[in-house]
């Protein structure tokens, strides 16, 4: 079980220092910040879009927007970037109008199957990923931040501008919905 795999690799102080330098156009700081953010944003987006290419494009766009507006950023930094990412994902779906009907590509899962991983487990993961996409935006955000990114409930509350109780409620409803989707598929 990999419950603590996704951790922040920059502490708050380091992040603040990088932000200060990035705000005055320090290219080195911007480079470090982008490298650090890219993976986080990519994972956040990957589980909500259909293809690796889309995830990469959107992640690049988020990084771009972050750097463009970093001088005007106030409040929680991660909340800000995940809000930008969420907005971009929504725009992406609005443009394509394909959100609910298209089957997720599951590039990563298929890639792992090719590499000889346990097929049943990976197929379950593929189904789980498909079910994840049927959740509401809010539920998807919480699930990805909590179980993929590995953030604590309080941290997610801060990022999404909600109370911890609200995040716990969303988490509970998201897990229940995922479970129900699973059961439904098994019955089918």
């Amino acid at each position: 079980m990999n419950l603590t795999s996704a951790k922040k690799d920059l502490d708050d102080e380091e992040l603040l220092q990088l932000l200060e330098r990035a705000r005055v156009n320090d290219s080195k700081a911007i480079g470090i910040l982008c490298s650090h953010l890219y993976s986080k944003i990519y994972r956040f987006i990957y589980y909500r879009v259909n293809a690796v290419e889309d995830a990469e494009d959107l992640t690049s766009e988020v990084c771009f927007r972050v750097i463009k507006s970093i001088q005007n950023q106030k409040g929680s930094f991660y909340a800000w970037i995940f809000r930008i990412a969420s907005n971009l994902i929504n725009d992406h779906y609005r443009r394509r109008s394909v959100r609910s009907n298209v089957e997720p590509a599951g590039d990563l899962i298929e890639e792992m199957i090719d590499k000889g991983n346990k097929q049943n487990e990976l197929l379950e993961q593929k189904e789980l990923r498909q079910s994840l996409k049927k959740l509401t935006d809010e539920q998807q955000e919480v699930v990805v931040l909590k179980f993929i990114e590995g953030y604590e409930t309080d941290e997610i509350a801060d990022m999404l501008g909600k109370s911890s109780g609200a995040i716990r409620a969303i988490q509970f409803r998201a897990l229940t919905a995922l479970r129900n989707n699973f059961i439904k598929k098994e019955v089918d």
Binding site: N2, S5, G31, Y42, S60, C63, I67, L108, L128, R179
Partner: peptide
């Protein structure tokens, strides 16, 4: 049990080319 399954979902890492491409574009922008 579902949480256990979610926690072991693959943690996708972006392609290094994608990161470097983005960094180059951002460098141009800066």
């Amino acid at each position: 049990q579902l949480v256990q399954q979610l926690e072991i979902l693959p943690k996708p890492e972006p392609a290094p080319e994608a990161i470097s491409g983005t960094l180059i574009n951002i460098g141009h922008h800066i």
